[in-house]
Protein backbone atom coordinates (compact mmCIF):
# COMPACT_ATOMS: atom_id res chain seq x y z
CA UNK A 1 0.00 0.00 0.00
CA UNK A 2 1.25 3.48 -0.85
CA UNK A 3 2.26 5.66 2.07
CA UNK A 4 -0.08 8.40 3.21
CA UNK A 5 2.23 11.38 3.09
CA UNK A 6 1.79 13.56 6.16
CA UNK A 7 3.86 16.36 4.66
CA UNK A 8 1.43 16.69 1.74
CA UNK A 9 -1.56 17.60 3.90
CA UNK A 10 -2.50 21.22 4.54
CA UNK A 11 -1.25 22.59 7.85
CA UNK A 12 -4.67 22.49 9.55
CA UNK A 13 -5.06 18.82 8.63
CA UNK A 14 -1.59 18.02 9.90
CA UNK A 15 -2.58 19.57 13.19
CA UNK A 16 -5.84 17.56 13.31
CA UNK A 17 -3.93 14.34 12.65
CA UNK A 18 -1.35 15.02 15.34
CA UNK A 19 -3.98 16.09 17.83
CA UNK A 20 -5.54 12.66 17.36
CA UNK A 21 -2.28 10.90 18.25
CA UNK A 22 -1.18 10.04 21.77
CA UNK A 23 2.04 11.56 23.05
CA UNK A 24 4.00 8.32 22.73
CA UNK A 25 3.22 8.19 19.00
CA UNK A 26 4.09 11.87 18.63
CA UNK A 27 7.39 11.27 20.41
CA UNK A 28 8.32 8.29 18.23
CA UNK A 29 7.21 10.19 15.12
CA UNK A 30 9.50 13.05 16.08
CA UNK A 31 12.43 10.64 16.00
CA UNK A 32 11.71 9.66 12.40
CA UNK A 33 13.34 12.79 10.93
CA UNK A 34 14.46 16.32 11.80
CA UNK A 35 11.95 17.79 9.39
CA UNK A 36 9.14 15.85 11.07
CA UNK A 37 10.43 16.95 14.47
CA UNK A 38 10.21 20.58 13.32
CA UNK A 39 6.71 20.07 11.97
CA UNK A 40 5.56 18.53 15.27
CA UNK A 41 7.13 21.38 17.16
CA UNK A 42 5.20 23.97 15.19
CA UNK A 43 1.90 22.04 15.16
CA UNK A 44 1.84 20.83 18.75
CA UNK A 45 3.41 23.79 20.53
CA UNK A 46 0.25 24.51 22.54
CA UNK A 47 0.05 20.90 23.65
CA UNK A 48 3.65 20.93 24.88
CA UNK A 49 3.12 24.20 26.72
CA UNK A 50 0.56 22.45 28.93
CA UNK A 51 3.25 20.13 30.27
CA UNK A 52 4.38 21.11 33.74
CA UNK A 53 7.09 18.52 34.22
CA UNK A 54 8.43 15.24 32.86
CA UNK A 55 8.35 12.29 35.22
CA UNK A 56 10.99 9.61 34.78
CA UNK A 57 9.60 6.60 36.57
CA UNK A 58 11.28 3.28 37.22
CA UNK A 59 9.20 0.82 39.18
CA UNK A 60 7.91 -2.48 37.87
CA UNK A 61 8.15 -0.95 34.45
CA UNK A 62 10.06 2.01 33.20
CA UNK A 63 8.02 4.89 31.93
CA UNK A 64 8.44 8.52 31.03
CA UNK A 65 5.36 10.67 31.39
CA UNK A 66 4.42 14.25 30.75
CA UNK A 67 2.47 15.65 33.69
CA UNK A 68 0.32 18.63 32.77
CA UNK A 69 -0.49 21.70 34.84
CA UNK A 70 -4.04 20.33 35.34
CA UNK A 71 -2.54 17.12 36.86
CA UNK A 72 -3.46 14.91 33.90
CA UNK A 73 -0.61 12.95 32.40
CA UNK A 74 0.36 11.31 29.14
CA UNK A 75 2.89 8.56 28.54
CA UNK A 76 5.88 9.55 26.42
CA UNK A 77 7.52 6.14 26.48
CA UNK A 78 6.91 3.01 28.48
CA UNK A 79 8.47 -0.40 28.43
CA UNK A 80 8.73 -3.49 30.50
CA UNK A 81 12.02 -3.50 32.36
CA UNK A 82 12.51 -7.14 33.12
CA UNK A 83 12.21 -8.28 29.54
CA UNK A 84 12.22 -6.56 26.24
CA UNK A 85 8.55 -6.55 25.53
CA UNK A 86 6.24 -6.38 22.58
CA UNK A 87 7.03 -4.23 19.63
CA UNK A 88 10.66 -3.64 20.41
CA UNK A 89 11.46 -7.28 20.92
CA UNK A 90 12.85 -7.76 17.44
CA UNK A 91 13.09 -4.17 16.31
CA UNK A 92 15.67 -1.51 16.82
CA UNK A 93 14.78 1.84 18.24
CA UNK A 94 17.29 4.67 18.32
CA UNK A 95 16.71 7.74 20.47
CA UNK A 96 19.42 10.41 20.30
CA UNK A 97 21.75 7.83 18.75
CA UNK A 98 21.23 5.45 21.69
CA UNK A 99 20.04 2.01 20.70
CA UNK A 100 17.04 1.09 22.81
CA UNK A 101 16.88 -2.63 22.48
CA UNK A 102 18.02 -5.23 24.93
CA UNK A 103 19.52 -2.49 27.07
CA UNK A 104 16.17 -1.46 28.43
CA UNK A 105 16.07 -3.41 31.62
CA UNK A 106 17.24 -3.45 35.21
CA UNK A 107 18.85 -6.80 35.28
CA UNK A 108 17.74 -8.71 38.29
CA UNK A 109 20.18 -11.50 37.75
CA UNK A 110 23.02 -9.70 36.08
CA UNK A 111 24.81 -6.74 37.58
CA UNK A 112 24.27 -4.12 34.98
CA UNK A 113 21.38 -1.89 34.22
CA UNK A 114 21.00 0.54 31.38
CA UNK A 115 17.78 2.38 32.02
CA UNK A 116 19.83 5.47 32.83
CA UNK A 117 20.98 5.66 29.20
CA UNK A 118 17.42 5.43 27.99
CA UNK A 119 16.25 8.21 30.32
CA UNK A 120 19.17 10.39 29.29
CA UNK A 121 18.64 9.83 25.58
CA UNK A 122 14.91 10.54 25.90
CA UNK A 123 15.67 13.77 27.73
CA UNK A 124 18.22 14.74 25.11
CA UNK A 125 15.76 14.17 22.30
CA UNK A 126 12.91 15.86 24.17
CA UNK A 127 14.85 19.15 24.27
CA UNK A 128 13.97 19.46 20.59
CA UNK A 129 10.27 19.06 21.41
CA UNK A 130 9.53 20.43 24.86
CA UNK A 131 12.49 22.81 25.21
CA UNK A 132 15.59 22.36 27.33
CA UNK A 133 14.23 23.98 30.47
CA UNK A 134 11.28 21.70 31.25
CA UNK A 135 11.18 20.64 34.89
CA UNK A 136 11.78 16.91 35.59
CA UNK A 137 11.19 14.51 38.45
CA UNK A 138 12.74 11.11 39.00
CA UNK A 139 10.97 8.29 40.78
CA UNK A 140 13.00 5.10 41.20
CA UNK A 141 11.85 2.18 43.25
CA UNK A 142 13.75 -0.95 42.31
CA UNK A 143 15.84 -3.87 43.34
CA UNK A 144 19.05 -3.76 41.31
CA UNK A 145 22.80 -4.08 41.68
CA UNK A 146 25.05 -1.52 40.09
CA UNK A 147 22.17 0.69 39.03
CA UNK A 148 23.39 3.95 37.58
CA UNK A 149 21.20 6.95 38.17
CA UNK A 150 20.48 8.88 34.99
CA UNK A 151 22.26 12.20 34.68
CA UNK A 152 19.12 14.20 33.99
CA UNK A 153 19.10 17.96 33.92
CA UNK A 154 16.51 20.28 35.49
CA UNK A 155 15.43 17.72 38.08
CA UNK A 156 13.43 19.44 40.80
CA UNK A 157 12.59 16.41 42.92
CA UNK A 158 13.65 12.80 43.31
CA UNK A 159 12.44 9.69 44.99
CA UNK A 160 15.30 7.20 45.06
CA UNK A 161 14.63 3.85 46.64
CA UNK A 162 17.17 1.33 45.45
CA UNK A 163 17.58 -2.01 47.17
CA UNK A 164 20.06 -3.07 48.39
CA UNK A 165 21.69 0.37 48.24
CA UNK A 166 22.82 3.35 46.26
CA UNK A 167 26.43 4.40 46.66
CA UNK A 168 27.94 7.83 47.19
CA UNK A 169 29.66 8.03 43.82
CA UNK A 170 26.38 7.35 42.02
CA UNK A 171 24.76 10.18 43.99
CA UNK A 172 27.68 12.53 43.25
CA UNK A 173 27.25 11.89 39.52
CA UNK A 174 23.50 12.26 39.73
CA UNK A 175 23.62 15.59 41.55
CA UNK A 176 26.35 16.98 39.34
CA UNK A 177 23.82 17.07 36.47
CA UNK A 178 20.98 18.60 38.54
CA UNK A 179 22.54 20.38 41.50
CA UNK A 180 19.60 22.60 42.46
CA UNK A 181 17.00 20.08 43.48
CA UNK A 182 14.23 21.06 45.81
CA UNK A 183 13.20 17.74 47.29
CA UNK A 184 14.57 14.24 47.70
CA UNK A 185 13.34 11.10 49.34
CA UNK A 186 16.30 8.78 49.72
CA UNK A 187 16.48 5.19 50.86
CA UNK A 188 19.45 2.94 51.47
CA UNK A 189 22.47 5.16 50.93
CA UNK A 190 26.03 3.89 51.27
CA UNK A 191 27.75 7.26 51.57
CA UNK A 192 31.32 5.92 51.37
CA UNK A 193 32.32 7.91 48.29
CA UNK A 194 29.94 10.80 48.80
CA UNK A 195 31.89 14.01 48.27
CA UNK A 196 32.32 16.39 51.20
CA UNK A 197 30.79 19.14 49.14
CA UNK A 198 28.15 16.93 47.50
CA UNK A 199 25.12 18.84 46.26
CA UNK A 200 23.03 16.31 48.18
CA UNK A 201 23.69 18.31 51.34
CA UNK A 202 22.35 21.49 49.76
CA UNK A 203 18.90 20.17 48.84
CA UNK A 204 16.08 22.24 50.22
CA UNK A 205 14.17 19.34 51.72
CA UNK A 206 15.41 15.83 52.36
CA UNK A 207 13.59 12.79 53.65
CA UNK A 208 15.66 9.71 54.28
CA UNK A 209 15.36 6.28 55.79
CA UNK A 210 18.84 5.36 56.91
CA UNK A 211 18.64 1.68 57.74
CA UNK A 212 22.39 1.32 58.23
CA UNK A 213 22.74 4.63 60.12
CA UNK A 214 25.35 5.86 57.67
CA UNK A 215 23.99 9.04 56.09
CA UNK A 216 22.36 10.66 59.14
CA UNK A 217 25.66 11.52 60.91
CA UNK A 218 26.87 13.15 57.68
CA UNK A 219 23.69 15.18 57.37
CA UNK A 220 24.02 16.32 60.98
CA UNK A 221 27.40 17.77 60.03
CA UNK A 222 26.86 19.12 56.53
CA UNK A 223 23.20 19.66 55.73
CA UNK A 224 22.77 23.11 54.20
CA UNK A 225 19.08 22.99 53.24
CA UNK A 226 15.91 24.04 55.04
CA UNK A 227 14.14 20.85 56.05
CA UNK A 228 15.42 17.40 56.95
CA UNK A 229 13.39 14.41 58.07
CA UNK A 230 15.44 11.38 58.95
CA UNK A 231 14.66 7.93 60.23
CA UNK A 232 17.55 5.90 61.56
CA UNK A 233 18.32 2.99 63.83
CA UNK A 234 21.30 4.45 65.66
CA UNK A 235 22.29 7.92 66.66
CA UNK A 236 25.32 8.98 68.64
CA UNK A 237 24.41 11.66 71.17
CA UNK A 238 27.79 13.37 70.47
CA UNK A 239 26.69 13.98 66.87
CA UNK A 240 23.47 15.50 68.14
CA UNK A 241 25.27 17.75 70.64
CA UNK A 242 27.76 18.93 68.04
CA UNK A 243 24.95 19.65 65.57
CA UNK A 244 22.88 21.60 68.09
CA UNK A 245 25.83 23.68 69.19
CA UNK A 246 26.70 24.69 65.65
CA UNK A 247 23.07 25.45 64.84
CA UNK A 248 22.55 27.52 67.97
CA UNK A 249 25.73 29.50 67.42
CA UNK A 250 24.88 30.13 63.74
CA UNK A 251 28.21 28.64 62.83
CA UNK A 252 26.43 26.33 60.38
CA UNK A 253 22.90 25.45 59.23
CA UNK A 254 21.92 29.05 58.55
CA UNK A 255 18.97 28.11 56.37
CA UNK A 256 17.75 25.25 58.53
CA UNK A 257 14.17 25.56 59.76
CA UNK A 258 13.16 22.03 60.66
CA UNK A 259 15.20 18.94 61.47
CA UNK A 260 13.56 15.78 62.68
CA UNK A 261 15.31 12.55 63.54
CA UNK A 262 13.20 9.52 64.33
CA UNK A 263 14.92 6.67 66.09
CA UNK A 264 13.54 3.27 65.26
CA UNK A 265 13.52 0.70 68.05
CA UNK A 266 16.75 -1.20 67.96
CA UNK A 267 17.87 -3.33 70.87
CA UNK A 268 21.50 -3.30 69.63
CA UNK A 269 22.01 0.41 69.92
CA UNK A 270 22.74 2.41 73.01
CA UNK A 271 19.72 4.27 74.28
CA UNK A 272 19.90 8.02 73.84
CA UNK A 273 20.23 10.05 76.96
CA UNK A 274 18.25 13.26 76.51
CA UNK A 275 19.47 14.70 79.82
CA UNK A 276 23.05 14.58 78.65
CA UNK A 277 22.12 16.44 75.48
CA UNK A 278 20.10 19.05 77.38
CA UNK A 279 22.93 19.68 79.79
CA UNK A 280 25.51 19.93 77.01
CA UNK A 281 23.77 22.67 75.11
CA UNK A 282 21.73 24.34 77.82
CA UNK A 283 18.27 23.85 76.36
CA UNK A 284 15.68 26.25 77.70
CA UNK A 285 11.98 25.62 77.69
CA UNK A 286 10.11 28.35 75.88
CA UNK A 287 7.59 30.31 77.82
CA UNK A 288 4.04 29.47 76.80
CA UNK A 289 3.44 33.09 75.97
CA UNK A 290 6.02 32.94 73.17
CA UNK A 291 4.51 31.92 69.86
CA UNK A 292 6.52 29.29 68.06
CA UNK A 293 7.32 30.08 64.44
CA UNK A 294 5.38 28.20 61.78
CA UNK A 295 7.22 26.68 58.81
CA UNK A 296 5.74 25.11 55.72
CA UNK A 297 7.59 22.18 54.25
CA UNK A 298 7.16 19.40 51.74
CA UNK A 299 6.36 16.03 53.16
CA UNK A 300 6.03 14.06 49.96
CA UNK A 301 7.36 13.82 46.43
CA UNK A 302 4.39 15.79 45.17
CA UNK A 303 3.38 13.73 42.17
CA UNK A 304 -0.28 14.29 41.53
CA UNK A 305 -1.48 13.00 38.24
CA UNK A 306 -4.32 11.18 36.60
CA UNK A 307 -4.54 9.73 33.11
CA UNK A 308 -5.84 12.27 30.63
Amino acid sequence: MNPIRLFNFPYVVQREIMDSMDLQTIFLLSISSKKMNNLILSVEKARFNKIKYILYDMNLEASIEAVNYNHTSEVILTMDTTMVLGIYKKKKLYISDTLIESKWYTARRTKTAFADEVFESVQKHSYGLFGDNKECKLDINIYAYGFRLPKLKNVSGSNIHIVPSVDGKTLNDYFSASPNQDFINLFGVKPGKLKINSKLYGINCIHTFDGKSQIVPNLLRKFAGKHAFMITLKLDHRDVIQFLKKWKSNELFEKLEILQVTLRDNSDSEPMNPVEIRNAIAIKTLSESVNSPVYNCKTSFGIRRSAS
Binding site: P3, F7, V13, E16, M21, T25, S33, K35, I87, Y88
Partner: peptide
Protein backbone atom coordinates in the same frame (compact mmCIF):
# COMPACT_ATOMS: atom_id res chain seq x y z
CA UNK B 1 -12.24 14.95 9.91
CA UNK B 2 -11.90 13.58 13.46
CA UNK B 3 -12.71 10.08 12.25
CA UNK B 4 -10.33 10.23 9.27
CA UNK B 5 -7.54 11.54 11.49
CA UNK B 6 -8.17 8.77 13.97
CA UNK B 7 -7.78 6.22 11.16
CA UNK B 8 -4.47 7.82 10.17
CA UNK B 9 -3.35 8.09 13.79
CA UNK B 10 -4.19 4.42 14.42
CA UNK B 11 -1.79 3.43 11.65
CA UNK B 12 1.01 4.54 13.97
CA UNK B 13 0.04 2.36 16.91
CA UNK B 14 2.92 0.20 18.17
CA UNK B 15 5.22 1.23 15.36
CA UNK B 16 8.89 2.19 15.50
CA UNK B 17 10.14 5.45 13.96
CA UNK B 18 11.52 3.37 11.08
CA UNK B 19 8.09 1.93 10.36
CA UNK B 20 6.42 5.31 10.77
CA UNK B 21 8.72 6.68 8.09
CA UNK B 22 7.39 4.07 5.65
CA UNK B 23 3.72 4.47 6.64
CA UNK B 24 3.71 8.25 6.41
CA UNK B 25 6.22 8.62 3.57
CA UNK B 26 8.72 10.54 5.68
CA UNK B 27 12.11 11.00 4.02
Amino acid sequence: MDYCCRVIGDMAKDKTPEELRIIYGIP
